[in-house]
Design a protein around this nucleic acid. Sequence first.
RNA 1: GCUCCAGUAGCUCAGUUGGUUAGAGCGGCGGACUGUUAAUCCGUAGGUCCUAGGUUCAAGUCCUAGCUGGAGCGCCA
Length: 482
Amino acid sequence: MKSRTEIKDVLKAPALGSAVLVKGWVRAFRNNRFIALNDGSTPHNLQVVVDADKLPEGILRKINFHACIAAKGTLAESLGSGQAVELVADEVHILGECNPEEYPLQPKRQTMEFLRTKAHFRPRTNTFGAVFRIRHAVAYAIHKYYNDLGFYYLHSPIITGSDAEGAGEMFRVTTLDLNHLPRTESGEIDWKEDFFGRSTNLTVSGQLQAEIGALALGKVYTFGPTFRAENSNTPRHLAEFWMIEPEMAFYDIYDNMDLAEDFCKYLIRYVLEYYADDLAVLDARLREEEKNLPADKRRPMGLLEQLHFVVDNNFERITYTEAIRLLQNSKPYKKGQFEFPVEWGRDLQAEHERYLVEKEFKKPVIVRNYPQAIKAFYMRLNDPHPDEPGCTVAAMDVLFPGIGEVIGGSQREERHDVLLQRIREVGIPEEELWWYLELRKFGGAPHAGFGLGFERMVQFITGMGNIRDVIPFPRTPKNAEF
RNA sequence: GCUCCAGUAGCUCAGUUGGUUAGAGCGGCGGACUGUUAAUCCGUAGGUCCUAGGUUCAAGUCCUAGCUGGAGCGCCA
C-alpha cells in the first residue's frame, strides 16, 4: 500500500471515478457510515463513506475518534451537502487503534490550557494543525525573503562563552558534577575544569556574531533558538524561543526600519496568499472565542481584517521624544489613567505602547532614537538634538497591536573610541568583548540590524492569545514537559 | 519576581448566609438509526471536591501555608 494519496491532493483535483488510497486520523464517525478523515496535509477533511454490512467483523467499533486508518475506494461526487467529493470505501484497515475510554482528547471544544498538557496530541486538533502549518510557512517565508534579497544565512552559536550579550539572564551549560564542584584556591568554582575550559551559557542572541558576518558577507541573517532564564510569566514570553536577526553592512537606522517594515509585511502577505484555508480556521476560532467576551474586551478587527490592515498601511514612524510628547498630551495621561509616569528618560511601559499602537495610530508603530541610558551598549550614539534633553541612540522598536514589541533593533556603534567608552561606562569587562571591539578597529563599517521574535510574529499572524500555543513544545518557568 | 483570580466527574462548568445522599451539558459505555456535517433519540456508569494543617456540633463552602494553572505588571523578542 505505497500509493497513498494525500487528502490535500485528493481535494485539490479530485479525479472522480478513480481508485484512491488515503491514510489518516478519524475526526468524526457519524451514523456508522460517514468518516471525516484528516491526514494533516490540509485543514480540510475527506469524507469516507463506508457500508457497515460489508466491513469485516469488529472493524466498526474501532473507527474511533483519532484512530488511524487506511481507506481504499472510489472517488465520487458527494450526495450530501457539506462537501463536493467523498471516498466510497470498499476497504478500511485500522492502522492504529484509539480507545476512547482512555484517550484524553474528545471531539469537542477544549481549552488551550488543557491541550497544553497534551502536547503530544494537540497537533491533531483543527486549531493546532493550522497553527503549526502556518508556523512552518512563516519559517519558510523568512528564508525565502532573505535569500531573494541576497542575504546569507549565518549560523550563530547556541553555546556561547560570552555573557556580555546584555539581553537577560542566561542558562548555564556545564558538565561539572554539581555535587563535587572543583574549587580554586580562593574557594570559587574553577570553570577551567569545565568542558570548554571556561564558563559557558546558552545564547540569548546571535547579534554580536551576526555583526561578524555582516562585516564580511555584507548582508546576513541568523535564525535559531535563543534562551532567556528570565522568570517571565506572560502570554508573550518563552524561555526558549526562535529569533531572526538580520545584520547589514552600510545600513543606517532608516534603511533598517525600511527593511523591518517590508519584512513584516512580506511574511504576512505570504501566509495570506498560500495558507488562506488555515487562516480561515483560525479566523473562525477567534470569532468564536470573542463571542464569549464582553464587548469592551473584544478586538476591534477580525484576524483576516487585521492582517490585511497591516499589509495595506504604512507603519507609523515616530521618535521616542515625539512619543513622550504625544503621551503627555493624551487623554489617559491627563486623566491620570496611566499607572506609570511619562517623562523623557523613562522607558515606555506596555500601557504606553498599547496606547500609541491601539488608540493613537491604530496600526504598527516604529519608535526610534531612545535615550542612551535605557538601551544596550552597542547602539549608535546620535548627534545631540535641540529637542532632546539628553543623549539618544539609534535604536528602533516595532510595536504591534496585541503583542507589543515584535522587533527590536538599532544602528550599531561602529566608532571604536565611542564604543570602548560606552563599554567602560556600563562596566562590562573589555576582555569579554575583545573580538567585538576589534571588528571596529580593523575594517569596520557602519552597520545595522534587528531581532524579530519568531513566535511573536506567528502569534500575531495566527491570532493565538498565548505564545505557548504557537510553539510545539513550549519552555516556560516550571515547565519543560515533552 | 510582584499583584489578582481559579482548582469540584474524562472535558467544560454549577453548587445559595457553612447543614441530609455533590449536580448539569458534553464525552464514555449499551441500544436504535443507509445521507450524516459539533448527527439525533433511549438507557447507563462515572467523584480522594488540588495537598497539608486549622476553625466549627457540622467544611466543596471559612482561615493559613504550599502546589498547579491563568490574567495583569516588570524584564524583553
